[in-house]
């Protein structure tokens, strides 16, 4: 059974006189342990697609099965629980809480998973250590570089041991060198822990780190192929 399966997914935004068809007829299957890059120009619907499969947004029509569960009929709180336990997010703008230390940022998903304080701290420190942020645990986001902030965000996404990591333009705010570091981190993560990674990007260089590229244009999938590594 596929981890993620969408059938004729569509999203329609009711803006202006005509409205916008952000997604049309998207049927995609993603299996456990895949590393998928979703590509497309801005406005191609790739982010909308990720928000829907990330349970942050609801499709207008079509079906979405996550791990065999139909997401369509779930309540806000049930979706929150899925996001908490199955999906970790990494965003372009890092989305860390300001004036909050790295370790406390990483703790947040555990907080909503009712993990006791001591255990939260232990796991968060461990996740930060794994990502090479030892010594920076109590720094606030504004005291960290972009690459370090993104590592904190990845630690936050991983700390709850979610099987899926979704990254929306994770390197968009980073320089080339740091971007490569972050991407290598994701590749390593995918290889070592079999975490399913879904990456949204418009840069072919970044997409090249993945194993499969799904190309979006005007809300439709126009190509879906394996990456041949040279």
């Amino acid at each position: 059974m596929a981890l993620i399966e969408t059938q004729k997914l569509a999203k329609f935004y009711d803006v202006g006189e005509e409205g916008v068809q952000a997604l049309a007829d998207v049927s995609v299957k993603i299996d456990h342990g895949e590393f998928v890059a979703i590509m497309g120009h801005s406005g191609s619907g790739k982010s909308t697609f990720m928000n829907i499969i990330g349970c942050l947004d609801q499709p207008t029509s079509g079906q979405y099965l996550l791990d065999g569960t139909n997401i369509g009929g779930l309540s806000r709180d049930e979706l929150a629980k899925i996001r908490n336990q199955k999906i970790g997010f990494v965003f372009q703008g890092f989305n860390l809480l300001s004036r909050t230390s790295a370790v406390e940022n990483v703790e947040i998903p555990l907080l909503y998973n009712h993990i006791p304080a001591k255990e939260r701290k232990r796991r968060s420190l461990l996740a930060l250590k794994t990502l090479g942020l030892e010594g920076r645990e109590y720094h606030h986001p504004n005291q960290l570089s972009g690459g370090q902030q993104q590592r904190v965000a990845i630690a936050r996404a991983l700390v709850n041991e979610a099987p899926i990591l979704m990254a929306d333009e994770p390197t968009g705010n980073l320089d080339t060198k740091t971007s490569i570091e972050i991407m290598e981190l994701l590749v390593q993560l995918n290889r070592d822990t079999h975490t399913t990674i879904i990456l949204v990007t418009h840069e072919p260089d970044i997409a090249a780190f993945s194993k499969r590229i799904i190309q979006f244009t005007d809300g439709r999938v126009i190509s879906d192929k394996e990456v041949i590594k040279s």
Partner: peptide, 16 residues
Amino acid sequence: TREIGIRMAVGAKTWD
């Protein structure tokens, strides 16, 4: 609002 969004994204429920 952004903080609320982040908390929701990582699993905060309505009552949280």
